[in-house]
């Protein structure tokens, strides 16, 4: 089948898509967008998190056919060459990135959290990101980064 949808603001089309293909597969293998990671391909880790319309989803669990005429935003579509998104910037500044394999998914999930809740508390951050596994960082710095990003998004300066 043919699937047509918007990715990071651009109309894209994928041809010869199989019934069982996931959105993750289409993004990575057909559209050349390897930002979202294939870490388990069964909805366990959150490394493949992308926005589908306005909701973060595990792209490995979404059938490609479901995204017809809808809008997908991946980590590649947050921020720009000139200006990173505050979440991306905060992850760098706070040292929330180690091996980086969980990072694209975490950034989308954190981005969504801050949109919904501009001033999240520790417990809310932990809760919101509990579906995103990270085996390297131990999360402390990720939580710092979300606070920093939230402050930036609210227009506050942080130390």
């Amino acid at each position: 089948m043919r699937v047509k949808f918007t990715v990071n603001g651009e109309e894209r089309t994928a041809d010869d898509v199989w019934e069982g293909e996931s959105l993750l597969y289409v993004l990575r293998e057909r559209l050349g967008l390897p930002g979202a990671k294939n870490a388990c391909e069964q909805g366990e880790c959150g490394s493949c998190t992308v926005y589908l319309d306005d909701t973060p989803v595990c792209a490995c669990l979404v059938a490609a056919g479901q995204v017809q005429d809808r809008e997908v935003r991946t980590v590649e579509g947050l921020g720009s060459e000139e200006e990173l998104d505050p979440v991306q910037q905060a992850f760098i500044e706070r040292g929330a990135v180690q091996c980086g394999f969980c990072t694209p998914g975490l950034i989308v999930a954190a981005h969504d959290l801050i949109r919904r809740n501009p001033c999240p508390k520790d417990a809310e951050i932990r809760e919101a990101l509990a579906g995103n596994l990270c085996r390297c960082t131990g999360y402390e710095k990720i939580i710092d980064a979300v606070h920093t990003a939230a402050a930036h998004s609210r227009g506050e300066a942080t130390s």
Binding site: P34, Q88, Q89, F91, G95, V97, T103
Partner: peptide, 19 residues
Amino acid sequence: LTRVEARDKVTGAARYTAD
């Protein structure tokens, strides 16, 4: 020092073996 490859990792530009 901030990790030199951090920017690529947060933008999705970093290339791992499967990429």
